[in-house]
């Protein structure tokens, strides 16, 4: 896959205040869903704003399908749709007119068939004549998406698309994003919710303090950085760890009925075989066992701790 967006050494410093972006380089591949994760103030929104033209980068370059966002901004921006984090919407205008307006802004001639498709896909068609202020929060957010899709962009930026959205709506949003990806739209989303990134993304970028700490395919990220925990449920409770098992990093659970062993799935030797052998030698009978993959959330927290 070719990179559709190429960010190179992008920095943004404000005259007063902290550095919002520090030397971010990133290639976004055509057709992928990239999730940007990071705590508040990590620079996710600034990165998006710089690519979309809301913020002037202090240094560095960005190209969109080969078009520089500064010198060739018209060609670059025409390919991009942006759904902002805050619900910013003309309160008195009607849904269909706001959507048409967005298409016009991006230089496309009026196309009612396309607007109808977009509004129908977002379940807004029945409310097309409603004023924006009459809509519920979830609907307003969908109007923002409709506006962003009105000019048939090849790239869609979703800045916290599910912030403050209830569970069922969040699921709808995910389904929509997948449909768009199936249509070939490249999607970059920022999120607080790790589960969202885990659920949706092909690749995950983790940002903190204006830096991009890493970008990795989700599966590989979880595999590489993932730790697994093996939990052993014992036949008979133990008062303390027998000395024969002292060599293993074991934790005795409450009541002495479980033993937890954490291991790195990427390591050459996980140590499980030896542990099981030692358990058998010590005469400890295991009733049941289970393993747990650490979640992206833990990976994320580990990374932030390492960076700090």
């Amino acid at each position: 896959m070719a990179a559709i967006i190429s960010v190179s050494a992008l920095s943004k410093r404000y005259a007063k205040g902290p550095t919002a972006l520090e030397g971010v380089s990133l290639d976004i591949e055509e057709g992928e869903i990239l999730a940007l994760l990071g705590p508040n103030g990590a620079g996710k929104t600034t990165l998006i704003s710089a690519i979309c033209g809301l913020v002037r980068p202090t240094s560095g370059t960005v190209t969109v399908a080969g078009h520089d966002i500064v010198t060739d901004y018209r060609a670059a921006r025409a390919l991009i749709g942006l759904v902002p984090q805050d619900i910013s919407i003309e309160p008195f205008e009607r849904v269909i007119n706001t959507t048409r307006f967005s298409r016009g802004l991006f230089g496309k001639p009026r196309d009612d068939a396309h607007i109808e498709r977009v509004l129908k896909a977002l379940s807004l068609w029945d409310r097309r004549k409603a004023r924006n202020m009459e809509l519920s929060g979830g609907m307003k957010r969908r109007v923002l998406i409709a506006k962003a899709l009105a000019h048939e962009p090849r790239i869609l930026f979703l800045d916290e698309p599910t912030a403050g959205v209830d569970v069922s709506l969040r699921k709808d949003m995910w389904a929509l994003v997948r449909r768009l990806r199936d249509d070939g739209v490249t999607i970059i989303l920022t999120t607080h919710y790790i589960e969202e990134a885990e659920e949706m993304a092909d690749r995950i970028g983790i940002m903190d303090k204006g830096r991009l700490l890493l970008v990795e395919e989700k599966a590989r990220l979880m595999h590489q950085l993932g730790r697994k925990a093996l939990c052993l449920f014992l036949q008979e409770p133990l008062d303390s760890l027998p000395p024969a098992l002292a060599g293993h990093a074991l934790k005795l659970g409450e009541g002495g009925r479980t033993l937890t062993f954490e291991y790195d799935t990427a390591a050459g030797r996980t140590g499980i075989t030896r542990l099981l052998a030692d358990l058998a030698a010590a005469g400890i009978a295991v009733r049941d066992l289970e393993t747990r993959q650490s979640s992206l959330e833990q990976i994320f927290l580990n990374l932030l701790e390492e960076a700090a």
């Binding site: 979309c52 033209g53 809301l54 901004y73 018209r74 060609a75 670059a76 921006r77 025409a78 991009i80 942006l82 902002p84 805050d86 910013s88 919407i89 003309e90 309160p91 967005s102 802004l105 991006f106 230089g107 506006k147």
Partner: peptide, 16 residues
């Protein structure tokens, strides 16, 4: 007004 309600983002991100 667009500045106040935030819809100015759209003008700034448009190819104009």
């Amino acid at each position: 007004f667009p500045k106040f309600i935030g819809t100015i983002y759209e003008l700034l991100s448009a190819p104009m």
